[in-house]
Write a protein that binds this DNA or RNA. Structure first.
Lengths: 177, 177
DNA sequence: GTTCACATATATAGCGCCGATATATCGGCA
DNA sequence: TGCCGATATATCGGCGCTATATATGTGAAC
C-alpha cells in the first residue's frame, strides 16, 4: 500500500498539514501498524494535489513558512474507496529481536538476558499506551488499539514464560560466533 | 538491519547460494519475521564478497548458469558478531488490514465480513505451519516458531471474539466514503 | 505425448521510501 | 542567555522491493 493511499486515509479524519500527517504515523493512532515519513509524505501530497485528489490551501503565518492545509476532494474520496476494495496484503511482522535470538547459542548469556529485559520493558510500555482509550478515537481506531493490546499481551506472556528456554541455550562465557 | 547482515546470518547455518538464501526468507524459517528479496540479496552478496566477509565458489553446471556457493569467512563471522551486539530495533507490525478497518464505518458490511473471513483463514493457515516443529531447527528457530504461534493464536482469538464490534459498525447498505 | 506450470539459478532496472539533513522561529526551562 | 524540543516545509542519497529477463529441467495434467 502506497503512502498516497495512506495520506488519503489520514485526510478522511479531517484536513491536515504534512506535518500533522507525519505525527499520526510517528506518535499517533496509526503508529502501531503503519509506516510513513516526511520523505514520502510530502512528495505524496504533491502528487495527490496534481492529480486533483486533494486540495491545498496555504495559510500564511508570520515569520514561518506557510502552513499548507490539505483537504480530500470528492475524487480523492472515491479513489480511497476504490483502494479499500483492493485485495489486502498480509500483515507483516518484522523482528530483529528474533533474528538475533537465532544466534543465541553463539551469544553470551548476559547479552541474551539483557536483550530480553529490554524487550519486555519496551513491550510493557507499549501495552500501557494501548490500554488507554481515547474519547476521540473512531471505532476502527479503538478496534486496532484493542487488537494491539491483545498481541502485546501475548508477546509479554510468551517471553516471560519461555525466556528461560533461550537463555539456557546461550553460551555461559565468552561469545564466539 | 541491512540485508548484508541478514545474509551473514543466513550463512551461519551453512554455505548457500543466493537462490537458497532467498528461499529462507520467502518460505523458510526466516519468512515469518524477516524480509529480503533477490533485488537486495544478490547485490548484498557481491558487496560482502568485495569486503572479504564471504567467499564465493562457482560450481559449474551443465546447461545452466554456474551455481555460486557462498561461505562465511572468519572476518564475516566477526562482523556478524559485532552486528549482533548493536542496539536492536523495535519489532515492527505493519497491517493494511487494520488500516482498512479504520474505515469500517464507511464500508459495506459484507466487505468487512469477507475481509475478516479471509484474514482468519490466512492466520489459521500460518498457525498450522508454525505448529510443526522441524528436527533440523536450531533452538533459536524453535523459539521464534513458538513465539509466532503464540502471536497468531492471540490474533485469531481476538478477531473471533471481537469481530462483531467492527462488523456492527460497517454500513448496512451501499458504501460511501 | 504434449503442454504447462513450477523449480532452479543469476542478475538488473525502475521506482518508492526511509533516514538524515537543511532552514527558520517560538516557547519553556535552567 | 543559552539550549532543547516543537512547529513546519522540503530534498538528497542510498537501500531495497517488485517485476522482469534469461535458460532449462521436472513432473503433473489431460
Amino acid at each position: 500500500m502506497q503512502v498516497t493511499t495512506l495520506c488519503l486515509g489520514a485526510l478522511v479524519f479531517g484536513d491536515a498539514t504534512g506535518y500533522e500527517i507525519n505525527k499520526m504515523f510517528e506518535d499517533g493512532p496509526f503508529s502501531h501498524f503503519l509506516d510513513a515519513s516526511y520523505g514520502s509524505i510530502y512528495p505524496a501530497l504533491m502528487r495527490l494535489t496534481e492529480e486533483g485528489l486533494v486540495t491545498c490551501k496555504a495559510e500564511a503565518q508570520e515569520r514561518r513558512p506557510d502552513k499548507k492545509i490539505y483537504s480530500l476532494t470528492e475524487k480523492g474520496r472515491l479513489k480511497l474507496r476504490e483502494a479499500l476494495q483492493q485485495p489486502i496484503a498480509d500483515d507483516k511482522f518484522r523482528s530483529e529481536f528474533l533474528f538475533t535470538l537465532l544466534f543465541a547459542h553463539l551469544l553470551p548469556r548476559n547479552r541474551v538476558r539483557t536483550m530480553m529485559d529490554h524487550r519486555l520493558a519496551a513491550l510493557k510500555e507499549k501495552l500501557i499506551e494501548l490500554s488507554q482509550p481515547d474519547a476521540e478515537d473512531t471505532p476502527g481506531m479503538d478496534f486496532a488499539r484493542q487488537y494491539g493490546y491483545a498481541i502485546y499481551s501475548a508477546s509479554i506472556d510468551f517471553l516471560e514464560n519461555k525466556r528461560h528456554l533461550i537463555e539456557e541455550i546461550a553460551t555461559e562465557e565468552e561469545a564466539h560466533v
